[in-house]
């Protein structure tokens, strides 16, 4: 903090001038912080509060009954299963894509990066529609699938594929800029010293990108659990079978069971808050270690 000082000290005045040059006056800082916090309160804190308030309004017993209902449990189970398939696949993809884009020059790279971004931009509804047109029984592959007694849409595979589609960019997006920024000197040094490619990746690259990777995985996981629009189109909403958590929440809302709807929502919200908290704690811990090491 800048404190008015009457001491005339050369070092101090210079430091003050510099600080003034790279920092704003107190009143501007306070104003900016206030605006930012007001904005975040309106958009983030209040919706969060509504969900938690709605979930626990009638006590913990009602909340527990809602989340331990068999249909809710089966929705939770299905959501976890899907995440366990989708997230590792997208992680592998993200690392591979970032490696090839950050470490190599090739034609069409800009197009490839745009393509990776595409699933962000494609409406979930269109994603669902694409797979209905492909795999629906009126669709192109539908007759073949049903003659071989295979189901894609209105079953787990369809839900998995639309969620993989929708969350594909998250890890890659996190890693590409990071790895581009870090360059390839360290890897080149390691390779020149005789380490092979896998070892270099494992001991040099991975530690460098670890936080970006974890962050990407957390985001991917959260999005995968929360995907709604695309799943709504391909799931068929069979209670206890193809209802994911977000769909189950909608079902409860439409059954006028608002407390239960918010209770299941609070699970997803709580999970997200916990993962975000872990991420912050780990980062903080790491920063402290670095500071100690530097001191």
């Amino acid at each position: 903090m800048i404190t008015p000082s009457t001491v005339i000290d050369t070092n101090d005045t210079i430091a003050k001038r510099w600080r003034r040059a790279t920092e704003e006056p107190v009143w501007i800082r306070i104003t900016l912080i206030t605006i930012a916090l007001t904005f975040l309160t309106l958009f983030l804190v209040l919706p969060l509060t509504v969900v938690l308030y709605g979930a626990f309004e009638h006590g913990i017993g009602v909340w527990y009954a809602a989340v331990s209902d068999p249909d809710a449990l089966s929705a939770i189970r299905l959501t976890l299963l899907i995440v366990a398939i989708v997230v590792p696949l997208n992680t592998l993809f993200g690392v591979a894509a970032a490696w090839s884009i950050a470490k190599f020059e090739f034609r069409g790279k800009s197009i490839l990066i745009s393509l990776i971004d595409m699933p962000f931009a494609i409406s979930p509804v269109v994603v669902g529609l694409i797979f209905v047109i492909l795999f629906g029984s009126q669709g192109w592959l539908g007759p073949w699938l049903s003659s071989n007694d295979m189901r894609i849409i209105f079953a787990v595979p369809g839900i998995v594929i639309v969620i993989a589609f929708g969350t594909l960019p998250f890890i890659a997006r996190e890693l590409i800029p990071l790895m581009q920024q870090q360059g390839k000197e360290e890897e080149e040094a390691s390779l020149t010293l005789g380490a092979n490619g896998w070892k270099t990746f494992w001991y040099v690259t991975l530690p460098n990108i670890k936080w970006g990777l974890i962050y990407g995985i957390i985001l991917c996981n959260a999005r995968a659990m929360g995907e709604f629009g695309a799943v709504a189109v391909v799931s068929g909403r069979i209670r206890g079978e193809t209802n994911t958590m977000p769909l189950h929440i909608e079902v409860l809302y439409n059954e006028y069971m608002f407390t239960a709807a918010f209770a299941v929502s609070s699970l997803l919200t709580g999970l997200a808050l916990v993962t975000i908290a872990i991420k912050s704690a780990v980062e903080w811990n790491d920063e402290r270690r670095q500071r100690i090491a530097a001191a």
């Binding site: 919200t269 997200a272 975000i276």
Partner: peptide, 15 residues
């Protein structure tokens, strides 16, 4: 506050 910024990612859109 920093952690909270990710909330719109994490909260399902329907919620």
């Amino acid at each position: 506050v920093d952690a909270l910024v990710d909330l719109p990612f994490a909260l399902p859109t329907a919620v």
